[in-house]
Simulated assay, not measured.
Amino acid sequence: MGERKLDTEGCQGIKFRNVTPEVFSCMKKKLQTYGIETSPGDFGRLEGNGIVAHFSWDGEANLIIEIKERPSTTYCGQVSGKLKAFMRECQGY
């Protein structure tokens, strides 16, 4: 298995706005389809494909995802770009 990098100095939190319950549910399904398991509920952990992150959704509109670990060959921008793409798909763009 590849090396993983702890992001103590790296990735900033990703903040999403206008995240309805339907969008939040869609986002979790997209992550699971991509091989990333998600904790049940509105906050918890995302883990898979060498990525470990924490997420927190306020139950209404705001979702924050903080990347804690990632493969050493993967940049923060790649991870956040994929998360943003999933969000756009879930919002119907």
Rank of each mutant, 00 (worst) to 15 (best):
E3P: 09
E3I: 09
R4K: 08
R4Y: 04
R4M: 12
D7L: 11
D7H: 00
T8K: 10
T8M: 10
T8H: 07
C11F: 00
Q12F: 12
Q12T: 09
K15N: 14
F16L: 12
F16I: 04
R17P: 00
R17C: 03
V19K: 11
T20F: 00
P21V: 01
V23W: 00
F24E: 04
S25I: 04
S25E: 10
C26Q: 07
C26N: 04
C26A: 12
C26P: 08
M27Q: 06
M27S: 03
K28L: 13
K29A: 10
K30S: 08
L31R: 00
Q32G: 11
Q32N: 15
T33S: 15
T33K: 15
Y34T: 09
Y34P: 08
Y34L: 13
I36F: 04
E37I: 10
T38I: 03
S39E: 05
D42C: 09
D42Q: 03
F43P: 12
G44C: 05
L46D: 05
L46F: 02
E47W: 07
G48L: 12
G48V: 06
N49E: 15
N49T: 08
G50W: 04
G50L: 03
G50R: 02
I51V: 15
V52A: 12
A53I: 05
H54P: 04
H54Q: 11
S56I: 08
S56E: 05
W57Q: 08
D58V: 05
G59M: 11
A61R: 14
A61E: 14
L63G: 01
I64G: 02
I64C: 12
I64V: 15
I64H: 09
I67E: 01
I67Q: 06
I67P: 00
I67A: 01
K68Y: 04
E69F: 05
E69L: 13
R70T: 01
R70E: 02
P71M: 12
P71E: 07
S72F: 06
S72I: 13
T74P: 09
Y75T: 15
Y75G: 13
V79M: 12
V79F: 06
S80L: 14
S80C: 10
S80P: 10
S80V: 14
K82L: 14
L83S: 01
L83H: 00
L83Y: 02
L83R: 00
A85Y: 09
F86R: 07
M87R: 02
M87F: 05
E89K: 13
C90N: 01
C90D: 01
C90W: 06
C90R: 03
Q91Y: 06
Q91K: 15
